[in-house]
Design a protein around this nucleic acid. Sequence first.
DNA 1: GTCTATAAAGGGATAGAC
DNA 2: GTCTATCCCTTTATAGAC
Lengths: 200, 200
Amino acid sequence: MRTTGDTRARIVTAATELFRRQGYAATGMKQIVAEAGAPYGSVYHFFPAGKAELGEEVIRVSGAAYLRLIADLFPEPGPRADPALATAEAFTAAARTLRELDYADPCPVATIALEVASTDETLRTAAAEVFDSWIDGLAAYYTACGIAEPAARDLATSVIGLLEGAFMLGRTSRSTRPVLAAATAAAAVVRATRTSVTGA
Amino acid sequence: MRTTGDTRARIVTAATELFRRQGYAATGMKQIVAEAGAPYGSVYHFFPAGKAELGEEVIRVSGAAYLRLIADLFPEPGPRADPALATAEAFTAAARTLRELDYADPCPVATIALEVASTDETLRTAAAEVFDSWIDGLAAYYTACGIAEPAARDLATSVIGLLEGAFMLGRTSRSTRPVLAAATAAAAVVRATRTSVTGA
DNA sequence: GTCTATAAAGGGATAGAC
DNA sequence: GTCTATCCCTTTATAGAC
């Protein structure tokens, strides 16, 4: 059993939670190692390039975890699947999560993405690839439901965007209502896209 | 002519632009006064409570400016107004703005809102009131188009959320496509709400 | 590979001359 | 009311003992 892996993982976990709650710039390396219960030097041992390298790791690890979550929420659809209903249910589940987290950021990438979009190309690109992977995953689901490209990808983009925006409004107002309103709206967009593409 | 007002206004303007580009935590007071061409002491003369007081002023001033922008984009509708079309056009205009700003943050409140939502109640509340004012303004427009409350407010909430989320994806990917996809989606939500409420 | 001490820079805030 | 100098603290990052 190597203890090395534990320390590194604890640092990434602590950084993820702090970045979610406080953002990237407001979170210090010392706070991260304190939260992780690790000595200060460890963070530079595992991330020699410093905070930016740790930030990129956080974005990629969280992004992969959320991709798995999307895959769970939108499983391979059967022939009579209702993508609008599945989408609405994912949003109502997200609203529950938001409340359970006491309105801490349910998306670990959103705050960092806005903070660094104009100032750090490496982190911006990492965040862009993560968002893209989510959109790809969701678009594949809609395609499997019979919605052809490129409509499926635009639909997936709008649904992810709507979720991120609803999280922003929900966190700020400390209310689940924006996310619940978005559930209805997202379902309407899915239905409209389906109608216009399949003519059903 | 008082020169006092100029200095204060320049500080607020500089802070607004820096917060948009770099976020709240990453922007220093010294950088703000340098950008404003003001002496360091001025910022504490006009904002004795320091950075948080300045941040609140930025949120409120920007919020009011954007409320006027919404009022311009969604003028008092005539009897044959098409709210879905007007909404889609507002999004395509927003996409143009995003590109013209070279993907700097078109929304001066979004980044700060996410950064402080869980850490500064005063700033969170200010951001919440700003978002609320935008939703109120847009809901009033949809109401004037014949969509009854509370559907109009939920619709306005979803449209604002969709715009904010699309900005996030657009900034991160340095592309207008998420905002253009959101234009189509927003129009679909407006149409669906109208149909379900008015039965038209 | 773990951990501590410290460097070098920049942060917010303040005092006080003018 | 303008402006400068400085305080004190925290930041990121590094050096080097263990």
